[in-house]
């Protein structure tokens, strides 16, 4: 370790083969800040606590004195590793392949980039920071937790592929951008923030109270309690959208913009 401090450190964690590869790993200790002190961390495999080195090959390049200069890279069979980036507040995490549930929960700063797909609950209850998923996201992307009144409050989640059901449930602030399609009930219970869907959606924005949702693909089964109030020309891309207010069933005053049926 250099005494005068380094510019940046990259910690590469590559998964080792496991005798029971289907057991989930809970890895909430994998946040950039924790690696400032070294790599002597533990994770859980089922109900057993394991050292990081038992489950990962660890490579460290460079040094850093501040957590924002820490980058963690995850490689290998990472699809069942949960809670990576939980409560992360700075720095970067890059996952080469797929990632397990609860990636980036409660995140308040920094960047998570996922090369493959993300399992359910990506960015749950996020406060700030940025998540980019190049593949698809599972159910409950950028959502809240059961029983809480608020979900994601800030930050940005961007999914290049599709998202599952209940995307952005309880969205309260921040931005969620799904380039592909969403499953059922995207934006349900939303009360703030912006949800943008490049592809299709089914029954979007049930019980919406506030916030905006913009859908560029096809909306299937528009809910009967949204009222069309006019048209709006968006600056970029240049499309005139139909504007609805609702969800009236919930006395909501949110804005739902959809591309008119039949337009290019």
């Amino acid at each position: 370790m250099h005494q005068d401090g380094g510019d940046a450190v990259r910690v590469i964690l590559e998964t080792k083969n496991r005798s029971k590869p289907f057991l989930p790993i809970e890895a909430e200790s994998i946040i950039p800040r924790n690696f400032l002190k070294g790599t002597d961390l533990t994770v859980y495999e089922g109900n057993k606590e394991r050292d990081l080195s038992e489950l990962f090959w660890i490579f460290v390049e460079g040094t850093a004195v501040s957590p924002d200069k820490v980058e963690v890279v995850l490689k290998g069979d990472t699809a069942r590793i949960k809670r990576v980036g939980e409560y992360m507040d700075t720095g970067a995490i890059r996952i080469v392949g797929n990632i397990g549930m609860h990636c980036g929960n409660f995140m308040s700063g920094g960047l998570i980039e996922i090369g493959g797909n993300a399992d359910a609950w990506l960015g749950r209850e996020m406060l700030d920071g940025s998540i980019i998923c190049h593949g698809n996201a599972g159910h409950y992307c950028a959502s809240g937790y059961r029983g809480e009144k608020h979900g994601m409050k800030g930050g940005r989640v961007e999914v290049m592929g599709n998202a599952g059901d209940f995307c952005a449930e309880y969205l309260t602030g921040g931005e969620v951008y799904i380039h592909g399609n969403c499953g059922d009930m995207a934006g349900v219970e939303m009360k703030g923030g912006h949800l943008i869907i490049g592809g299709d959606a089914t029954r979007p924005c049930g019980n919406m109270k506030d916030g905006t949702c913009t859908i560029f693909g096809t909306v299937r089964r528009m809910l009967p309690t949204f009222k069309k109030i006019g048209m709006q020309l968006l600056p970029e891309p240049q499309i005139t959208m139909e504007v609805y207010t609702g969800d009236i069933a919930n006395r909501g005053k949110g804005t739902l913009m959809v591309k008119p049926f039949g337009s290019a």
Partner: peptide, 9 residues
């Protein structure tokens, strides 16, 4: 779901 929303309104 749709029917219930409609009834609420």
């Amino acid at each position: 779901y749709e029917v219930l929303s409609a009834l609420r309104a």
